[in-house]
Amino acid sequence: MNHSITYLEAICAAQRKALAEDPRVFIYGQDVGNFGGAFKATKNLAKEFPGRVLDSPISEDAMVGMAIGAAIEGMRPIVEMQFADFSTCGLNQIVNHAGTLFFRTEVPCPLVVRLPSGGNTAGGPFHSQNLEALYAHYPGLVVMTPATVEDVYTMLLEAIKIDDPVIFCEHKFLYYHLKAEKLPTEGLPVGKARITRPGRDATIVTYSAMLHESLAAAEELVGDGYEIEVVDLRSVKPLDTDTILASVARTGRLLVVSEAFPWGGVAAEVVARVTAEGFGLLDAPPQRLNSKDTPVPFHPALWGTHRPTASTIASALHRLLKL
């Protein structure tokens, strides 16, 4: 491959396109200006768009509050959290202000909060978290969890166009590992899951970095004669229950895989919906596989065990297929 675009470059490219095409768009976050962001997701954008890519103080609450005020006034702010973990310092503005604004006032609140999410080697407890379930819990927020270079590009562009607050969970593990030959001109809309791999014996429902671990697990089971269907949710809110149920109708077995903490999470929500709406489709109790219910550990040996991997997903599939 002569030329390839990484997941991270696709994020930068989407922001560049949005800045170029829509004068209402601006970017606000720590170190996003001349430095180009802690991960370089805004590399060169401050130079290319003077005055529209602005360094913020270390003030997550004020960053989001500022974006809300600007959005009320018709702008399309993109807030970059340096790490998803730090967005909890801006939680109040996100869930109580942005998330309630349209319901309360009928004034839209079109902003995007980018959350560099998920574990990476030696990230530790405070640079590794996946917070999509936290934000999906609150009304009024769209929560996107793109798993591919193509999706991260088209979904970020869609996030900026949506008239509501969007929590954009981009996965740091995918930043450099994932590459595509070129960027797409169009993509599936938010709320539509994708069947990434068709199968007949069991369904894995997953999203973000766990898509790739799940695909590897599904490949591993080919040797045992199993065809595993893998559904990429793409967005966890809205959640494409129809595609999930249609897949379970074909396979009769469900495993939901998420890198996030288990308690009250996206996997629990999917299992609850399938159980409530598709109980008769199931040939076995639906299963879920999450990270462990502890803070994310620092050491790579612990971290590698803390989160689901292709190997643990394959084991979970084997157990499911025997139920």
């Binding site: 004068p23 960053m63 500022m66 974006a67 809300i68 005020g69 600007a70 009320i72 503005q93 202000h97």
Partner: peptide, 15 residues
């Protein structure tokens, strides 16, 4: 919470 929101509205006007 309203302090930064008003600030954001003023940023929008400045833009």
């Amino acid at each position: 919470a309203m302090v930064s929101a008003v600030g954001g509205a003023l940023m929008a006007r400045r833009f």
